[in-house]
Write a protein that binds this DNA or RNA. Sequence first.
DNA 1: AGTTTCCACAACCATATGGTTGTGTATTTA
DNA 2: TAAATACACAACCATATGGTTGTGGAAACT
Lengths: 118, 118
Amino acid sequence: MVVETLTTTFSALSDPTRRAIIERLSQKPASVRELTEPFEMSQQAISKHLVYLIKAKMVKKEKVGRESICTLDPQSIKAVSDWALNYRRFWEESFEKMEDVLEEMKKERKNGRKRKIC
Amino acid sequence: MVVETLTTTFSALSDPTRRAIIERLSQKPASVRELTEPFEMSQQAISKHLVYLIKAKMVKKEKVGRESICTLDPQSIKAVSDWALNYRRFWEESFEKMEDVLEEMKKERKNGRKRKIC
DNA sequence: AGTTTCCACAACCATATGGTTGTGTATTTA
DNA sequence: TAAATACACAACCATATGGTTGTGGAAACT
C-alpha cells in the first residue's frame, strides 16, 4: 500500500462519526438516510463524511432508485491492521523493552563524554 | 480504550512524517536532532510532530543532559491493531461478501415496493 | 568565560476539516 | 400531476493542521 493511501485511511479513521459509520456498516449495508438517523447532524454532514470514507476506499456507494446504498469495503482496514502488526513485537512481552534500551543508551552517552574528558 | 483516545491516535498516524518517526523509533530511541536529520524540515516542525505523538501516547520523551531522547510507546499502536482486528472477518474469504448482502437487499427493497403497489 | 549545540515557545500564514444553511434534481408516493 | 423524499452541490464559517521564522535558555564544548 502506498504512503499516500495510508495517510488518507488514517485521516478517515481519525473522526469518531466516521468510525461509527464503519461500525454501522459492518452490520449491513445502509442508505445515507439510515446512516444519518443515529446522529444529531445534518444529512449533508454525513454525506461529507462519506466522501472521506469513499476516498479512503473504506466504503462503496451505489445508487439504487432515489437512495444511495453504502457498503463496507474492508481492504483499507486490512491495510491498517497490517501496518499495526508490523510493530506487534513491541507490545509482546518477549521483546526487549524500549525503556531498557534507553537506559543502556544513557550509560553509553555518559561514557562517551567521559572518554573525551580523559 | 476511549473514543477520544482512538481519535487522537488515528490523527497522529495520519501524517507520513509522524509515521516515519515511529518507524525510526522502532529501531532504537533517538534524540530530537537525530529524528530531524532525515527530513527536509525544521527542528521546530519535528518538535511539533512529537507533541502530537506524545499526546497520543505513542512516544515518550525524556530529557538527558541537553538532549531529549524519544522512545516508542507501543500501547496505542496495539489499540489500533485491536480496533482493526475487530473487522478481520470482513477481509477473510470465509465471511459472506458485503456485495452479496447488498444484492439481497436490493431485491428485498424492490419486492417491498411491489407489495405496496399491489 | 565565550561559543556552540539542543531544544522549546511564540507569532504568523496557508490550507484542511467539520459543521452549517440554502437550493436543485431525480425518484417515489399520493 | 402534485407533493414528498433522498441526496448532492455550493457558499460560508470557525477552528485545526502543518509548516515557517525569530528567539531565548540550558547544557556542553573549547
